[in-house]
């Protein structure tokens, strides 16, 4: 110990890298950071760019990340890579879009939340499913 640390690079959709490394360079928001083992705990945003990894007895490896977060613990480093290109404005636009779509869908709805109707509908569906089940069991 002391000369290596564990590195995980994960995105929401998959795990990209996991293993012991000696040295790491990541494009942090305030400039590139190089990390050796026993770095002090740090949390920072990273920009899109190349992460350079040096594992023991191996060539340096380059992995592209499209931004994300970097967490540094003395012997564990985690990069949470984003799968989407993120920016405040983009996120805002998306949320407005989601709202607008919902409002559109709500235009022709009834005014009050009708639980009785909802339950009747669901109970009917459940009864149908139960009936199918029963029929199947009787048939065989």
């Amino acid at each position: 110990m002391g000369t290596i640390f564990h590195l995980d690079i994960v995105s929401a959709e998959e795990s990209i890298y996991s293993g012991p490394v000696e040295f790491l360079v990541a494009p942090a928001q305030m400039g590139e950071v190089g990390i050796y083992p026993r770095h002090t705990p740090m949390l920072t945003r990273i920009k899109s760019g190349m992460v350079r990894i040096k594992a023991q007895l191996k060539e340096e490896e380059l992995i592209y990340v499209s931004g994300g977060m970097l967490e540094v613990q003395p012997d564990i480093v985690t990069i949470l890579a984003d799968t989407a290109v993120r920016s405040h404005d983009l996120d805002e636009a998306k949320s407005i879009e989601a709202k607008r779509a919902a409002e559109e869908a709500m235009k022709n709805r009834e005014s009050e939340l009708d639980y009785a109707k909802a339950q009747a509908e669901l109970i009917e569906a459940m009864a149908q499913l139960a009936a199918i089940d029963k029929l199947r069991k009787r048939g065989h």
Partner: peptide, 28 residues
């Protein structure tokens, strides 16, 4: 919407592979 609940955001048609980019808006 049929039963008249107050729906404030939505995402539909995600397809077979749920896409993070599509979810962000509604979650936000």
């Amino acid at each position: 919407s049929r039963i008249g609940a107050n729906v404030t955001s939505q995402v539909i048609g995600l397809g077979d592979a749920p896409d993070m980019t599509r979810l962000i808006g509604a979650v936000k």
